[in-house]
Computed example of a mutant assay.
Amino acid sequence: MLGEFGDRSRSPGISGRPDFALVGLLRIPETQTSPWASLVRRVLFAVALLFGAALVVYIGRDGYKDNSGGELSFLDAFYYATVSLSTTGYGDIAPASASARLVNIVIITPLRVLFLIVLVGTTISVLTERSRQAFKIQRWRHSVRNHTVVVGYGTKGRTAIHAMLADGVQSADIVVVDTDTVALEAAGNAGLVTVHGSATQSDVLRLASVQNAASVIVATNRDDTAVLVTLTARELNKSAKIVVAIREAENIHLLRQSGADSVVVSSETAGRLLGIATTTPTVVEIMEDLLTPEEGFAVTERDVEPSEIGGSPRHLSDIVLGVVRSGQLHRVGEPAVDAIEAGDKLLYIRRVPK
């Protein structure tokens, strides 16, 4: 852990780099489009450029000279636009007047450049990919707020994200931080914003905009790494809700001292379920149901309604498990919550339609 602290102190200032230099570290998911749709769009754009150039030439046809004589028709104008934008230039139709030549300089030449860009669109798209990503990164960093940062895209991180998505959280509101490029590729393919780097470094978390996040999920493979990530995240954001998964219960106090709001001991939780399953497997089944929102039931929280104030949580139509008052959870049956008060939140079992 001391070595990780040392790495953190020598942080190169990733979050302070220009947006162009962040391409590859921060990835904004692309909107997937069909190659045929992209090709058709480029062809239509090229045709539109041709028609636009032809219209400009036709409007100013009096300033052009045709070697065959006679006034330019729209077909002649379209022919001139085609050979001009493609840089063929046979010379049989040429701008003769000063105004026509000015139009060629100001309008036709820029259209020619655009037309050539469309013709070599595949090559240009490769060259402009970094610029497009840099622009998306800049826009994202200025707009992201109240999102969730998930550190680690292993089994725990993926499952946590799956649960959030099933509960209605938008994929655009989730940012994944990991050092594994394969895991980040999978997260990116799932439509998630990804950041490549160690979350033990404050600059990497700043790049994930953890300072503006509403919550942070720490799902690393090592407990000591989880402690350091929690310390760093809490230092950057004093108000975010930080939830941490660890392997050993003896490290709970370290996570609490580091600033974690909730700590889940994965090994002990799995062990309890295994023990229960030997005698009452249906209990494990209903627990899985409650923890999987799309399966039919979900444990969730809501504000009390005005008509419920003063009543007992045990007499409501919902199955209430507890009452959250001033940020503290009280189980149903405790004297402190015999009567519901304004501002309380109810922790209850919600039925999810399949």
Rank of each mutant, 00 (worst) to 15 (best):
A21T: 12
A190Q: 09
G296H: 13
I28G: 06
V169G: 03
I124K: 07
V193I: 11
V323Q: 12
L254W: 11
S266A: 06
F5G: 09
Q211P: 02
T181N: 08
M164G: 02
E248M: 08
V263R: 09
A186N: 05
V244G: 12
Y64E: 14
A219K: 04
N104K: 04
L49H: 04
A81Q: 03
N221E: 14
G13M: 07
I107S: 07
T123R: 03
V204L: 04
E301A: 09
V43C: 09
G3C: 12
V126K: 03
I286W: 08
N221V: 05
G311C: 09
T159P: 00
G188M: 05
K65N: 01
D261Y: 10
N212S: 08
V176W: 03
V210K: 00
G157W: 06
A37V: 15
H196I: 05
Q201D: 13
E295H: 15
G322D: 01
K354Y: 10
L205G: 03
L127Y: 06
H162I: 07
G89F: 13
T282M: 11
A233L: 01
V204F: 05
A134G: 14
V227P: 12
I309P: 14
D66I: 03
P306F: 00
A233V: 01
I93C: 05
S202T: 09
H330C: 04
F45L: 15
P18Q: 06
S326K: 13
A81T: 12
D62Q: 15
V263P: 14
V23L: 06
E71P: 09
G271C: 01
A134P: 13
S326Y: 08
Q211C: 02
P18E: 10
V57T: 05
N221I: 08
A81E: 02
G24H: 07
L2K: 04
D66E: 02
A233C: 03
D303A: 03
R222D: 15
A336M: 07
V126E: 00
G91T: 11
D224G: 04
D223P: 07
A339I: 06
I107T: 09
G191N: 04
L236A: 00
T230D: 12
D19T: 06
S307G: 11
L291W: 04
T155W: 03
R331H: 12
